[in-house]
């Protein structure tokens, strides 16, 4: 029966060429769940240090960096084997970080210490520590690498760091409990989400002036529960997908008009997200329900929930 034998081979060939994985940190399981972006199933689970949150890959994806908050370290893992290669000095309680475009320096928010730590991943040494506001969390670096941003949850500011001097050159107020920051449109805009304020503030990077403020109105949900946290842009920054925390929705925001076009129902207390290779699918971490929602980006519909570990938090894509 030759035709039947050929069938599996045919299926394998028909898979999209951009197969990949979404790596999800499970804050209260001390593990990473790895989801295959084609089969939408957890294919591996790796152990990490205590309370893993922020996660990011090196440019060539040969290393994965993990904030192990309660172990007070950033772990460097070999993504092929799941083996921890070494720890980086990170300062206390690292929560989020961002890799500089030079692929070498990590900018780390030390939540309990009101400090941003800059670590050289090659020499494994702390290059600088910068005093910022209380409970730093959101981290971003401009595409040209010249500006780093730390947002502080209790001081309610975006702190602008000159990466040349490693010093603050501006501090701009945002609404309560800023959580996440991203540069957009080739580094001309900075977006900052405010969890308790319920808004995203858009800054003009050249002047650090507020350019727009985006608010959200999820039908039948009290505004207090609409708490923007993580967000990601589609290619060309035409749209942003914004996690709205305990409202259990993700908003789709138009990058030009700053208007909300759609709200998508996901799991409970949605935190962060990552796209697959061709940006056709979005994977959101849902802290309270302990799962990941897969959104079909084209139709803006949730298509699957994938059970992961306890309190999934960060997400990162790997081809």
């Amino acid at each position: 029966m030759p035709p039947l034998k050929l069938a599996p081979l045919f299926l394998a060939l028909s898979l999209p060429v951009h197969a990949g994985e979404i790596w999800v940190t499970n804050e209260k399981d001390d593990t990473i769940s790895i989801i295959d972006t084609d089969t939408l199933e957890v294919v591996r689970t790796y152990e990490t240090g205590e309370r893993p949150r922020g996660i990011t890959f090196s440019k060539d994806f040969s290393r994965v960096y993990i904030c192990a908050s309660d172990s007070d370290t950033v772990q460097v893992m070999d993504p092929e084997t799941g083996k921890i290669l070494h720890d980086l000095p990170s300062g206390e309680d690292p929560e989020q970080f961002v890799l500089h475009p030079d692929d070498r320096h990590l900018y780390i928010a030390n939540e309990d210490d009101a400090i941003t730590t800059v670590v050289d991943t090659e020499t494994r040494k702390v290059v600088a520590q910068i005093d910022v506001g209380i409970e730093p969390e959101g981290m971003a670096v401009s595409p040209d690498g010249k500006i780093a941003i730390t947002t502080s949850e209790t001081t309610n500011m975006a702190h602008w760091i000159d990466t040349e001097t490693q010093e603050l050159f501006a501090n701009t107020l945002v609404d309560s409990r800023p959580r996440h920051a991203e540069f957009a449109k080739e580094g001309t805009e900075l977006w900052v989400s405010s969890e308790i304020g319920g808004t995203i503030t858009v800054f003009d990077v050249a002047t650090q002036a507020e350019k727009a403020k985006i608010s959200f109105d999820v039908p039948n949900i009290h505004p207090d529960r609409v708490q923007p946290v993580g967000f990601e842009f589609t290619p060309g920054d035409t749209h942003a997908f914004v996690a709205l925390g305990p409202s259990n929705h993700v908003a789709v925001v138009n990058g030009e008009t700053f208007e909300v076009e759609e709200y998508i129902l996901v799991g409970r207390r949605v935190w962060h997200m990552a796209f697959n290779a061709d940006h056709s699918r979005l994977f959101t971490t849902n802290g309270v329900s302990g799962d990941v929602t897969v959104i079909d980006v084209g139709s803006r519909k949730p298509i699957k929930s994938i059970k992961v570990g306890r309190f999934p938090w960060g997400a990162a894509f790997r081809p």
Binding site: G133, I134, H159
Partner: peptide, 10 residues
């Protein structure tokens, strides 16, 4: 102490 930290920047 929290107020003072914010105040430092302003």
């Amino acid at each position: 102490k929290e107020n003072a930290t914010t105040g430092r920047f302003l």
